[in-house]
Design a binder for these strands. Sequence first.
DNA 1: AATGCGTGCAACCGCTGTCAC
DNA 2: GGTGACAGCGGTTGCACGCAT
Length: 324
Amino acid sequence: MGRAPCCDKANVKKGPWSPEEDRKLKDYIETHGTGGNWIALPQRAGLKRCGKSCRLRWLNYLRPNIKHGEFSDDEDKVICALFASIGSRWSIMAAQLPGRTDNDIKNYWNTKLKKKMMNSLISLPEIRKPFHHLQSFNSSSNYSYPPLSIFQNSNSNVNTPLSSSSSPSYMYSTNTNTSSYHDQTLSISSSPTTTAAHHQHQVLQSQDHGVPCYQGVKDSSTLVFFGGDQASCSTSNSDGSGHYEYGSGAYDHHNNLRNLQSDSYKEFGGRYDKEKGYYGDSALDSSLEEIKQLISTNLCTSNIDNNLNFFVDETKEVENSMYY
DNA sequence: AATGCGTGCAACCGCTGTCAC
DNA sequence: GGTGACAGCGGTTGCACGCAT
């Protein structure tokens, strides 16, 4: 036999904490500490809560020196850099950001920063620079990213080599009339304000299913391509409706269903589309690996701090451009 | 004013590694 | 050595709030 059950699951309160419960928990811990035993704590503190719930409440909300509110530009930089380096290791990120909790960082990334980065990364000529030396390439290329070492002096845990799970597959072109994108010469966009968030973009896609499929977003001067696998190929929507395809399928966050058959999205970065019956955030989800790789590559190819500053500045610019 | 929708975030869920029994 | 609880973590959900229609 192992240990006794931690608590009577049927007899503990769930849901939001009341001010009175907060006070009891805070008073108890400030007086007695946690004692390294969260399971026994609620009973001792006079709370009808599971120890796990108490721990979460304390760590995420009641603990001293917790920061609430807006994340600073510097914090944005750190989160982006760490995400590129170690992925969704929120607790490690929290260790680098005093006063922030893993839950806070996770929420911030999922609701704001991910979209900011996505909007920024897919539209910025500067971000494409690391790829300029590649005349042409596809998803089978052997290009590999060097490990990121930004924080190696502050925390060895975050100096983890990048994932090698997938190879980059991006192509950029100023040619707006091409339906087959292979072996195109890479070039820098001449349009500084190009963004995939502009609403009238038209969907283009590779017609050649014998090689990795590329989907692009087209505006008057620039194409931005994101790599994908065969599952991301789908029929083109060029009806000018403002809906466009992106990524590798719609992802339903609430039901954990991936719909690889979907054929359009309401809007880049959007949420649930009742008309279509699925979520638009999938564009972001399917490109997370691209975000990580783009951030990593950009960071690794030139001065890190300059690039981080660049991220923040350009993100603001793109955000502003979306609302003109 | 009523309703619907999008968003942010607190809290819960479930998994994994560790450790007590 | 096996079993099962604990602690910690990342993913997911539910709900309140604000804004748009």
